[in-house]
């Protein structure tokens, strides 16, 4: 079978856009046909030019001017900008994968609801903390539906948090919390986000706490390992740093995510998990198309 790669556009040339560009280039099913932002001085634009990718500094206008340039659009700008981009891309009939915490489209965590996601035309990749922890929270709630509160502490290195992430810190925190509630069904969740400027930069580190009495620990350990193994298939650096442990009336699970080092170094697991999840969705879209 002679497969033609599906053409993708990437809007936003910051950290996430760049990491995504490298992953799309590695894909056997996808290709980047336009890499578009607003800042002609951006490192991303320079680097993309160097490696022979077509670029633009007219942001979404580049796609409006030439609608056939791509079939899939990744938006890595900001929640505010995506609210403007979404209706435009809908009119153009694009399959949109949104990596901002805009909440515009249907949330998607591939290990949970990849199939559902493909039925929508705008998919939201939640947040890195949501991608890392919502599947574990869901697994836990399936075993212990009586749990009433789950908490996530996500620590990421300052170096890996670009200007978009920073400008969206409130949406980021709120969306992570809401995603844990939405996917797991827990009545109340809470997300804490810590930006850590320490040198050398820390890897993305997530701690999940749940208040619980009499946990079925063996079953939880088995199930959590199973879910982690599934995630590892599309996020190779996803690792349980502390397997489910019970002390002091609470269950603790820790997860670290090491990046694949596509653009930013390996400590940026927070970028890696969300761009990997986005590419997973795009590849599934491509596969379905050629089935």
């Amino acid at each position: 079978m002679n497969r033609k790669k599906i053409q993708c556009g990437i809007i936003g040339t910051g950290n996430i856009g760049m990491d995504l560009l490298f992953k799309v280039r590695r894909s056997e099913l996808l290709a980047c046909s336009i890499f578009t932002g607003r800042d002609p001085e951006s490192k991303g634009i320079q680097k993309a030019k160097e490696i022979g990718i077509r670029t633009s500094v007219n942001s979404i206008q580049a796609i409006l001017d030439e609608p056939d340039i791509c079939e899939i659009v990744f938006d890595t700008t900001s929640a505010k900008a995506h609210a403007i981009h979404a209706p435009i891309l809908k009119k153009l009939g694009k399959f949109v994968i949104d990596l901002t915490p805009s909440r515009f489209g249907k949330m998607c965590v591939p290990v949970i609801d990849l199939e559902d996601g493909l039925h929508s035309e705008n998919i939201n990749m939640v947040t890195c903390g949501g991608q890392a922890i919502a599947p574990l929270a869901k697994a836990l709630m399936e075993i212990h539906p009586e749990i009433e509160y789950i908490e996530l502490v996500a620590a990421i290195s300052s170096k890996s948090a670009g200007s978009g992430t920073r400008a969206n810190i409130d949406e980021y925190t709120q969306t992570t919390k809401d995603a844990i509630e939405y996917y797991s069904g827990v009545p109340r969740a809470k997300a804490l986000i810590i930006l850590n400027p320490a040198e050398p930069p820390i890897r993305m580190h997530n701690t999940m706490y749940a208040e619980i009495t009499n946990p079925k620990l063996e079953e939880i350990i088995r199930k959590v390992a199973e879910v982690a193994a599934h995630i590892k298939k599309y996020v190779p650096g996803y690792t349980l740093a502390l397997e489910p442990t019970y002390e002091n009336g609470r269950l603790t699970i820790m997860v670290e995510v090491e990046g694949q080092g596509d653009y930013l170094p390996a400590y940026s697991g927070n970028l890696d998990i969300i761009t990997s999840a986005a590419v997973r969705v795009a590849e599934e879209y491509a596969r379905k198309k050629y089935e």
Partner: peptide
Amino acid sequence: PGFGTIKD
């Protein structure tokens, strides 16, 4: 920032 949100 990161501990609370505007809405909550």
